[in-house]
Design a protein around this nucleic acid. Sequence first.
DNA 1: TTAGGGTTAG
Length: 746
Amino acid sequence: MRCLGEHFCKLLIMLSIVEEKYIQFEPKAGGGNLLRMFSTSTLYNKPYLIEAIKKPGATWAAQLVEFTIPKPNMLSIHSILQKIFIKGLSFENHPQWFFFLMFRMTRSCGYFIPYFYGKGFNSHYVKGKKCLLKIKPVSTNHYASKLQLCHSRSSVSFSLARTVHAHMISSGFKARGHILNRLIDIYCKSSKLILARKLFDEIPHQDVVARTTLVATYCASGDLKTAREIACKCILDGFTYTGVISACANAGLFQIGKQVHAYLLRTEANPTLDYSLSVNNALITFYSKCGKIDEARDIFNQMQVRDLVSWNAILSAYVSGGRIEEAQSHFRNMRDRNLLTWNVMISGLAQNGFGEEGLKLFNKMKLEGLEPCDYAFAGAITSCSVLGSLDNGRQLHAQLVRFGFEASLSAGNALITMYARCGVVEAADCLFNTMPSVDSVSWNAMIAALGQHGRGAQAVELYERMLKEGILPDRITFLTILSACSHAGLVEDGRRYFDSMHKLYGIAPGEDHYARVIDLLCRAGRFSEALDVIESMPFKPGAPIWEALLAGCRIHGNMDLGIQAAERLFEMIPQHDGTYVLLSNMYAALGKWDDAAKIRKLMRDRGIKKEPGCSWIEVENKVHVFFVDDTMHPEVQAVYNYLQEMVLKMRKLGYVPDTKFVLHDLESHQKEYALTTHSEKLAVVFGLMKLPRGATIRVFKNLRICGDCHNAFKFMSKVAGREIVVRDGKRFHHFRNGECSCSDYW
DNA sequence: TTAGGGTTAG
């Protein structure tokens, strides 16, 4: 029990700080045997645990901890907590259980304190307890290490830092130097600038470290006057400049960052400024984040000395600018690479739509003997989202658990999107609800997932829940919730959220937000309102606005307005194939074949090619691609035969091919045949032929699904008794028993 | 004790 005793001592010290209270604590003996008994077990979810829960005190805590060895992680402990609550047990009478857990988690995973703080645990178990132990002031090292606990890779615990600070004051401890600097840093990172400034002003000898922290924070908040005031009172070093440049990069302050750069160039001859490497590295990232990739490259090329940070920074710049070829060539030319290099490249490929390449690189990384971290997993999982490869995604999820990263936020968030984009929104929902901790990215991902699957009401519900839990929506939250409302026809909700953006949350709507509102209104046929919104915009409408308007006009056959929108688009983005196709489709749908042909001719004259429609489906871990009128796939003839039989059965149930979706003026039997060559039909039929009985058919299409295919899949789902899920360029359709989840609103 | 290279959401 010696080891346990030590744990408890450490715990006590820590808790004294966490709670600012005196805590009654009575360690109980008897855990030793059980500790040994389970020392090799990691099966925390076996019935032993249920038995163990019935036992009191330290015995139980000892088991609990031991069960999580050798790889304690957030998920395993979280699931224990869930079991405890399911059984109606609480920590009320056994605070030591909670202490032990918290200590173990904090030590093993580094970020459990913020987790517990958010969940109201602290008030749950201490209230009403007698206070027996008085906590004395502790050493500088102790406070330093406690403040270190406030920092984790992804979060800063303001509440813990504040408590440590309070403890210092109440115990009479005189904090100096780096302890204060750390506190200031944490306050700044927690956006408590006033508190940080107050502390800074109380320091008798303000050093360059504290100044650097504050200058960078004031700069990021846009308060340049104060930043300058603080900066000019001491000799600045490289840390200050890199800090300021980085702050400008993160806050998007391009002009100011450029001024700092110009200033540094003027003072380059100054021999005291010997920090060009890190400053240049910061500058690469600054220009990259401001979208100036060429400038970033120039800095990299002109650098006399470069290190791995420089190489990674410029690689990241290429990737973020979508310059994948340059990134790949740069990656190949790198003599040294670290884990980060691989992560940047893998996720960069995935983000730019190169899912297959991303997965290949992830596997290559492993073959080269590098152990992937959770960021690498996140990149690989994103690759699966791009491909719609559920099999690969599931395998990666399993690997992730084996590697002990199941508590990772970035990988977890990537998984939510992967499951949703692979058509299994239930799995995404389940993951979201069982993740040990979530952040705003997770909420946004889940709201987006529900929206894409046509579950607008649920998306709205989740958004409201997010607000109730005190999470502030950001500009991406609004993009996702507006899309969700738009796809589900929730016009009033969408309008209300759009209005609240600026009024309640101070976020100025961007063009992308306006485009979504226009989409929302036009889909519902409310064109005059949409035009009013366009009038009220503080900037000139760009292509996304006219595209949304045109798409709405197509749905409602509003030819006049559609032509106006298309004309604007022809001026703005003449090379974009979508405008020509949409307008031509509108004419064709109205039977105006001459006009449709004119648009097609215009397209040809301008040398614009329509992106060919293609659909794909994963069968036994292999992706099968079908094009329109496919002749390439080895089994395509069997597919056509199967489809013909299927159409006969569908006709008996009332299916009538809707030839208005054929865009060329053909004889009616030719039109009907043309419909049967659509890539999405071929892929779905291939799935029906190849996948086991009862398995859901999941098909992906690069463009929007065709209206006749949409109707046909409703009948097909009934005839075959199967669920068919189709992901098109915008959203998902779930066909089940003759109906689609979108209720034909798309 | 401060700074410079990464991730996930649209």
